[in-house]
């Protein structure tokens, strides 16, 4: 089966700044692929090129077998684009927005009405469909934003940070809706800097940093390939002696400051022994946190940047 989305050696510059450099990726029909990276990594630019909003400088961009930007009009007929910020008419109702965008997507009046009802059900906004968008919460706007992009059951769906700033309940609903579209055969490319979202929603993840693909693959593969150990942060009642970890070869001190310590556990089975020794050496363990390695850790390991910060100044926790 040919890929629904193909990017090959894609390059894009804005003035002197290189936004995308030799980006390769592909998305199959029915597949949800995450585009993970910090702010400024080039995720939105890649989506904008695929959404026919800006042309690439070099390389190939193919959507549903159509080459961009030459065949942009044909691409637009099969494309669903959900921008990062809700692109809605705030004084119109949800239904009016949907009907309008349905007509703009090429649906007839009747079909647009039917599609509106269908997507309202899908994003669970039927009860508020006739309220003005200005009265919607942020999560409701994002759901409506998604609904506007899927009215015509697109073969290719581009989602730019669809759940940013959305509460858990809305996020669950959005994820469910996106999953349903993929299940219907749509190729979905999701831009996000939320590792959990990528982990939960996407079968594959492509990591972007400073316009380059630094890694790609299934989430578990990416974390495992990073070689990052689980970490344990604890605080004891009194400072433990310096030699309190002697004999525990799978445990390394990452940071220590009085009663606080952050430890790397190369072997998680050593945890019970470690906790018992900490209680003895420090009097009592008053705080404890155990962190398994995530995509963010893997990203940090690969790039030295965190996912949250565009400048890469932070550390994964």
């Amino acid at each position: 089966m040919p890929s629904a989305i193909v990017l090959a050696d894609l390059r894009k510059r804005y003035g002197e700044r290189t936004v995308l450099a030799d980006v390769d990726l592909d998305v199959q029909a029915g597949e949800i692929v995450g585009l993970l990276g910090p702010n400024g990594a080039g995720k939105s630019t890649a989506l904008a090129i695929l959404a026919t909003l800006v042309p690439a400088d070099e390389g190939t961009a193919v959507v549903a077998g159509r080459v961009l930007p030459r065949e942009a009009p044909a691409v637009r007929r099969v494309l669903g684009y959900v921008p990062q910020d809700p692109a809605l008419y705030p004084t119109l109702t949800g239904r009016e927005n949907l009907r309008f965008f349905g007509r703009m997507l090429g649906l007839g009046a009747h079909a647009a009405g039917d599609a509106t009802d269908r997507v309202l059900e899908l994003v669970e906004l039927s009860e508020r469909a006739d309220d003005a968008v200005t009265t919607y919460s942020g999560g409701m706007r994002r759901r409506l934003n998604l609904a506007c992009g899927i009215l015509h059951a697109p073969r290719v769906l581009l989602l730019d940070e669809p759940t940013a700033g959305v509460d858990m309940r809305s996020r669950e609903r959005l994820h469910a809706a996106i999953g349903a579209l993929a299940a219907d055969g749509a190729a979905v490319l999701v831009s996000t800097h939320d590792m959990e979202e990528a982990d939960r929603l996407c079968a594959r993840t492509v990591m972007l940093d400073e316009g380059r693909v630094v890694a790609s693959g299934a989430t578990t593969d990416l974390v495992g390939a990073s070689g990052i150990a689980a970490s344990l942060s604890l605080r004891t009642l009194r400072p433990p002696p310096p030699d309190w970890l002697d004999g525990l070869g799978s445990v390394r001190v990452l940071a220590a400051n009085g009663t606080r310590a952050t430890l790397a556990l190369d072997d998680p089975t050593a945890l019970p022994v470690l906790l018992a020794r900490a209680a003895r050496a420090g009097g009592e363990v008053v705080e404890l946190r155990f962190d398994r390695p995530t995509l963010a850790d893997a990203f940090f390991k690969l790039t030295g940047h965190t996912l949250r910060d565009g400048d890469g100044g932070g550390r994964a926790s």
Partner: peptide, 18 residues
């Protein structure tokens, strides 16, 4: 600013129509 112009540009109907 609402983003609707960009959204319309990704749709089959030409922006000039809008």
């Amino acid at each position: 600013d609402w983003g609707t112009l960009a959204r319309l540009r990704t749709m089959p109907v030409a922006l000039d129509v809008a």
